[in-house]
Amino acid sequence: MSSAEASEASAASAAFAHDGSEEIGVLLCHGFTGSPVSMRPWADHLAEAGFTVRLPLLPGHGTHWRDLNKTPWTEWYAHAEKAFVELTGRCRSVFVFGLSMGGALTLRLAEEHPEIAGIVLVNPSVLTLRKDAKLLPVLSKVLASLPGIGNDIAKPGVLEGCYERMPLRAAASLSLLWRVVRADLGKVVQPTLLLHSAVDHVVEPENSAAVLAGIASTDVTEVVLANSYHVATLDHDAPLIFERSTEFVRRVHAERAGDRA
């Protein structure tokens, strides 16, 4: 990689912030071992729509996989929550969007903060059916990492800027986040837009099913993404995700404004 390419890659993985509307703010949460690269086109679209946008780089991400092994899920959550609180001081309606693990963080924020206007989830992860996952608490004490699980994208030549290795202590911590989120799914009452891929080689379909069955929201829209794999925000269905999420935000905000009138 040339120095120019390295600089470009570093810029793409950095946190992103845009100050737009004082009416609508959107927080985006990226996935496990990933970075803002996977969400940046979505963030750019939302900024162009006039919204205030925050896309943080979560602790332990965007550097080296060993750094992620040093950060528990509570640090990822605290960082996302800090960005959310900052947005609530700027905007009347704040929405939270999440991809994969970012979806778990989004759900946890919704459980803890009923004032969130609405949530958008793309291939959210809240569990795994892999039998070896039960060994993580023990395995992570003797083995630092395994080969990575990123870049599950149908569109040729597209990379999400994730780690090449999966840090096992961090993976074990992620499983604890899932447990907490699943236990409190009934606290999620916000309008919800859930988009999930028909074919996903990272997150099983049982994840979206568990979310839809567990949340208490009455305003729920499910969209199946027919032409994308796990990182759908960078895949063939990205324009559909961007369009449907923008429509969702505008509709929910308008309904909230009507309630306040």
Rank of each mutant, 00 (worst) to 15 (best):
L68K: 01
S197E: 04
G25S: 07
H201P: 00
H253C: 09
E247N: 11
L174E: 02
P239I: 09
L168F: 12
L168Y: 04
L234Y: 10
V96P: 00
L174P: 04
V252R: 04
F95E: 02
R66T: 15
L174A: 14
A183W: 00
P167Q: 06
Y229I: 01
E115N: 11
P114W: 05
L105E: 05
V26Y: 03
E8A: 14
F97N: 09
A11S: 13
I241F: 12
Q190N: 15
L185P: 07
L146Y: 03
V122W: 00
M1K: 11
A49H: 04
T33I: 06
D219M: 06
P114H: 13
E75N: 11
P41Y: 02
E222C: 08
A49K: 13
V37M: 03
A15Q: 06
L193R: 03
H30V: 09
T218C: 10
F242E: 13
A144E: 15
A170P: 00
C91R: 05
D44Q: 15
E81T: 07
E23V: 14
I215D: 00
H30S: 12
M1I: 09
E112S: 15
D237M: 10
H196F: 15
G20L: 08
N207I: 07
V220Y: 04
L177M: 15
S35H: 03
R165L: 13
T128Q: 00
H201T: 11
E255S: 08
G25P: 00
S228P: 08
D19W: 05
L129G: 14
R179K: 14
A213L: 10
S217R: 10
R54Q: 13
D237N: 09
H196L: 01
V138G: 04
P205Q: 07
A15I: 02
L99I: 12
E8P: 01
L55Y: 01
E23M: 08
P156V: 04
G62M: 02
E164Y: 11
F32G: 08
I153T: 03
M39P: 01
P156L: 01
G157V: 08
V126N: 03
K155E: 11
V199F: 11
A15L: 04
L234K: 04
W73T: 03
L68T: 02
N151W: 00
C162V: 09
K82G: 10
A144C: 06
A80T: 02
L87V: 04
S228Y: 05
L105G: 12
A232N: 06
A261R: 14
R54W: 00
L143S: 13
S140T: 03
V142C: 07
K131T: 13
V158K: 03
K131Q: 10
H30T: 08
I153N: 07
P114I: 09
L109E: 03
